[in-house]
Amino acid sequence: MDLVLFDLDNTLLAGDSDFAWAQFLISKGVLDREVQEAKNIAFYEQYKAGTLDIFEFLDFQLAPLARHSRAELDAWHREFLQDSIRPMITAQARALVNQHLERGAIVAVVTATNSFVTGPIVREFGIPHLIATIPAQQDGAFTGKPRGTPAFKGGKIERVEAWLESLGLYFGSFEQSWFYSDSHNDLPLMQKVDKPVAVDPDDTLRAHAVKRGWPVISLR
């Protein structure tokens, strides 16, 4: 049996769900365009540069969840999924996921983007497991803060190992372990698995993959 892990943004998706969610809320008038759009773009550039302070970003990204009811957020997310996310899902991405599922692998998405945004997207792919940054809740409402370790950089390894342990498994339980990602931020987890695959990679990851002889593919 194989373990197959996928990054989500700019890997399975031809775009970034975190960035797109904030832009969607701006377009709805939920967030102030003048203030929030500049911050959203700045954080995205920091992520691409590898300089993102994940906790500073999560203060920005999770705050809107705390200001609105879950019913309202869920309604917005259904619109977001239809209008913003489905156009980012390519036939190649669906086919790759289905290929691993049909072979009986344990398949999961491992993403720094929070589970409220990513849960419905992962279900859209038919992927049974999600390891994501978790928005904290109190009395059924989001608090605007994360709970536990964010699934970012080395935190992805910690979160995956805890998830596997909850299943009575560990990395050595599998014949092969795979991780598909576009980002150099994911190098810690890519170096942990047997078969790292660079997907439409950024320049830093592409150079690393070429040097290490890792496969480089496109799902676009």
Rank of each mutant, 00 (worst) to 15 (best):
A14T: 10
G126E: 09
L81A: 10
E56S: 12
G144H: 14
E37Y: 11
I217H: 06
F55G: 06
T90I: 06
G144F: 12
L189R: 09
V35G: 09
R103W: 00
F116M: 02
R78W: 02
F57N: 14
A95C: 03
A209P: 00
R103V: 01
F24D: 03
P146W: 04
E34A: 15
S183M: 04
W214V: 04
A162Y: 10
I85E: 02
E72L: 13
E124A: 13
K153H: 09
D53H: 01
R220C: 07
I54M: 15
E37I: 05
P196T: 09
F116T: 02
K145L: 15
D202A: 07
S177C: 05
A22G: 08
Q191E: 15
L73W: 06
Q46C: 04
Q82V: 08
Q36P: 00
A14K: 14
D182G: 08
D53I: 02
A66D: 00
L8D: 11
K28N: 07
E175K: 11
E72V: 11
E45D: 12
S183K: 03
R206L: 14
I85W: 01
N185K: 11
V199A: 01
Y47K: 09
Y180A: 05
D202M: 05
L167E: 13
G15Q: 07
F142T: 09
D83T: 14
L3D: 04
H184T: 00
H208G: 01
F174R: 01
Q137Y: 07
L205N: 02
R86W: 08
A42P: 03
A209H: 00
Q191N: 13
G50T: 05
E45W: 09
A91V: 07
S173G: 02
P120W: 03
V109Y: 12
Q176C: 00
S84M: 12
A136R: 14
D186Y: 01
F174I: 03
F6I: 10
A198H: 00
P64V: 10
L13Y: 12
Y47D: 07
V210M: 11
S181T: 11
S218T: 13
A66H: 06
S181Q: 08
Q176H: 10
F125P: 06
D200V: 06
T118R: 03
A209Y: 03
K28P: 04
W76V: 03
I217C: 02
P87E: 07
G144P: 13
S69D: 15
A207R: 12
A14P: 01
R212K: 15
S166D: 15
D18Y: 08
S69R: 14
S166G: 14
T143L: 14
A71F: 07
P87K: 05
R67M: 13
E37C: 09
E34G: 13
M1R: 11
D203T: 10
L96D: 05
Q36V: 09
K211A: 15
W76G: 04
W21Q: 01
P215C: 00
